[in-house]
Design a protein around this nucleic acid. Sequence first.
RNA 1: GCGUCGGUGGCAGAGCGGUCAAAUGCUCGAGACUGUAAAUCUCGCGCCCUAUGGGCUACGCAGGUUCGAAUCCUGCCCGGCGCA
Length: 383
Amino acid sequence: MIEFKVLKRSKKSAARLGVLKTPHGEVMTPAIVPVATLAAVKALRSDEIAATGTQLLISNTYHLHLQPGEKIVKAAGGINKFMNWPKPTMTDSGGFQVFSLGFGRDLGVGKHSIKYYPGKIEQAIDKGHQPSNVRLTEEGVHFRSPLTGEELFLNPETSIAIQEKLGADIMFSFDECPPPGATHNYMKQSLARTHRWAKRSLAARTSRQALYGIVQGADFEDLRKAGARAITRMDGFDGFGIGGDIGESKEESRKILKWVVPLLDQKKPRHLLGMGHIEDIELIIKGGVDTFDCTVPTHYARRGIAFTSKGRVDFGKEALLKDKGPIDASCECLICQKYQRAYIAHLIRANEITGGALLTFHNLFFFNAYVAKMREKIAKGIL
RNA sequence: GCGUCGGUGGCAGAGCGGUCAAAUGCUCGAGACUGUAAAUCUCGCGCCCUAUGGGCUACGCAGGUUCGAAUCCUGCCCGGCGCA
């Protein structure tokens, strides 16, 4: 079980300072949650992850079920022991894969944008089309593994059963993450189903692990509010996930949080699913979010992108080969103390995995430090 | 020296009379990425323009054959291999 304590509420925004107590230790919130999909923050050892200031990780039900299978993880002593990560963990339910392996994959779009295919998703959905590799029914979701073609069925009951075997401190209810651009009509039905699945997720729980219910509703005010009320009313959830399409613009994201956050049980923690670009973090925290996960720092690092106090730096660029300075002069991470940009640029350009590892470390440190500053600001009453 | 095989865009390497500014891979350049199918994907990569079209220069060098040559012929230069 978890325990959440709000230490301070901002008077200037919905931001709050808190402590999330879990069986594996405490998390100072707001906190960023790096993504360890396959029980690994790609390129880093667990002691390195901790050294970046990371307090909490999120792994994935779908991926760990396919590989190596939850039984293996359980036999290894649960996800913490399995990956030698002594700190708190979450597992996502697989609901996101309904989107990412479904419409997302079909149309090549991300959750936040449909700009490349305007209208296509609406049309597909209105015609009742199913994405080509995912079939949704009331009972659950049939997936086809993009790697092996293997079929997989996930529903609230199986997702919770898998998550209980994985043994993270916090689980998420199985939801449908609908595609961006979904029509109101589609969303309304999807939302109702996600709520039925939320109840089934609650009923399926047999462990003492915490379980968060996920609020959907896309960018429709009535649906977001209905979602927030419905999940709050279910009483039994230990916290909330805010998921799905969180708006194409910062302004919309802000609006969505404003609709949802006030309607949630204020004593429980709120987690924003899949959003956390460095420039989003302030609005996320001001919007009242306690924890949020995002693949950006780790994902971009392996693409050669470093986040710095002066913006993004692309280490694939030839010019950096002559730069003897650190990634970020104002960063206190180990990499910035010891390594030249020139070397990291060389590693990235030469496709050496060490380059991705160094940037992953720096990016995570940078994001964590940024969020730590936000906590300070809340404590001082200036955020 | 003789014989033989070969010299193609930044590299490797297809093409072997027209549909070739030249396959493919790599490199290089630009872009994308927010609950990770992701050390990935997309686009560009001779020069110029009044640019979903047109012009120019190109396949070692110089000639030639042909309506037409990266593709055939001759000579030269360069490289690999074999024999002296």
